[in-house]
Design a protein around this nucleic acid. Structure first.
Lengths: 232, 232
DNA sequence: CAAAAAACGAGAGCACTGCTCTTGACGAAC
DNA sequence: GTTCGTCAAGAGCAGTGCTCTCGTTTTTTG
């Protein structure tokens, strides 16, 4: 990768990286809407049209920032999971939840870029889907580990409506052998987590909830219990 | 209100309304980012600077659209609740959830304006807080009605951490007499609902979940059960 | 009823954006 | 060593939010 061939390719990779770094800094301070190609170019001492040699459009720059963001979340989640005892399933779940929230609170604008209102007309390219699924992959591993260990009680057979039985194949593929009822409970818990974080990051809890981290932990504990991950 | 004093005030109210209508239409098609004061002026046959006689800035126009949006959600929620038998608590809860989701699916860009990434630097004025709390007010009424009727089991005393005991006063004020444990479960369920809807509206379920309405209903049923609203 | 005051629409203009096109210089490959 | 592809620069286009000025019209005041 970094085994640069010609000098030109080397400096190109360097500049591409510098552009994304500056763009990420601007994103962090101004938000996605305030990201300006011209401002990036200005900060690099280049003229604005030169940027287009590296990114064909503003959307393409945003796309690489999005991919980087998903990878950052994924990495945080994976490290959090790796730091727990393998058989402490609820501990792993809670650690993973806090990892997502901590990253979101530390990078609110990047989080908004990933999980907030999508830019109209913006089409997520194929490149994003791998990075995007790293978090739910970890979730799937925790749940299926817990299930295999017999730590998760099976919900009633009739809990899941018939039309949902063959749904969400891509999620089920991450939890082989886990019954549908548990899978849906896990999906519910996972979306609930992002809902909570979005409310917090987007300011919906202002003047309402102050002990954010504790409240988040409490909510996640309830969600984990619903999935069947009993607290140790 | 419409007892217009002078002719000038009458035409002013008329034009103000026309501006917001056109703006709302543009918002629905282009999204918040694509809302252009100049385009609104063009569609009205006015020059762009004339708009500023009615709205001092683009943000102020967005603010009235936001207030209108919150009121639309609130009205949908209130009507959904009013259409149910008063003692069918889980039915009321489910009806209210579907009301929010149906509105969001029908008005994705307006929903994004209300619950998506906030515009950086945008400060929600005081005017919004009344309209904003109409939905959670209904939720509070359902839960406290159910609690008063003895339909909600009390969670264990020690469930809620001590630091959360005196939190979220504004929410608790909507559920007088309801124990803290139930309040927090209701808050969790409510944020989970918005999390689900945001994921759906913002496209996170693309290529993953197809039977959106059924999956939403299933998730909401799980959440209602966690609160203690047993299905009839 | 007439004069002062306020509100209004039009227009020009500023600073900014994303993006395109052309021009001239530099490095790489044949 | 010449040709070819890559690059930064600059000018320019269409669009944005917003400000200011200038007559005109309507309302309020004397």
């Amino acid at each position: 990768m970094t085994a640069s061939r010609t000098a030109r390719e080397r400096v190109r990779a360097e500049l591409t990286r510098e552009i994304t770094d500056i763009a990420r800094r601007q994103l962090a301070t101004e938000g996605a809407g305030g990201l300006s190609l011209r401002a990036v170019a200005r900060e690099m001492g280049m003229v604005s049209s030169a940027i287009y040699r590296y990114f064909p459009s503003r959307d393409d720059l945003l796309t690489t920032l999005i991919i980087d963001g998903y990878n950052a979340v994924g990495e945080a989640v994976e490290q959090a999971d790796a730091g727990c005892a393998r058989d402490d399933f609820s501990g792993r779940y809670m650690a993973v939840c806090h990892a997502v929230r901590d990253w979101a609170v530390a990078h609110p604008h990047e989080y908004a870029l990933l999980y907030g209102s999508p830019v109209p007309g913006y089409q997520a390219p194929e490149d994003t889907i791998v990075a995007r699924s790293r978090d739910v992959t970890v979730l799937g591993r925790i749940v299926s580990d817990a299930w295999r260990a017999g730590a998760v009680p099976a919900p009633a057979e009739e809990e899941v409506p018939a039309e949902l039985a063959d749904e969400a194949a891509s999620v089920k593929g991450l939890m082989p052998g886990v019954p549908t009822g548990v899978v849906w409970r896990a999906v519910s818990a996972w979306t609930a987590m992002y809902g909570w974080i979005s409310f917090e990051v987007f300011g919906q809890f202002n003047n309402t909830i102050e002990h954010r981290r504790a409240a988040f932990a409490h909510t996640m504990r309830l969600a984990a219990a619903t999935v069947g991950l009993s607290s140790a």
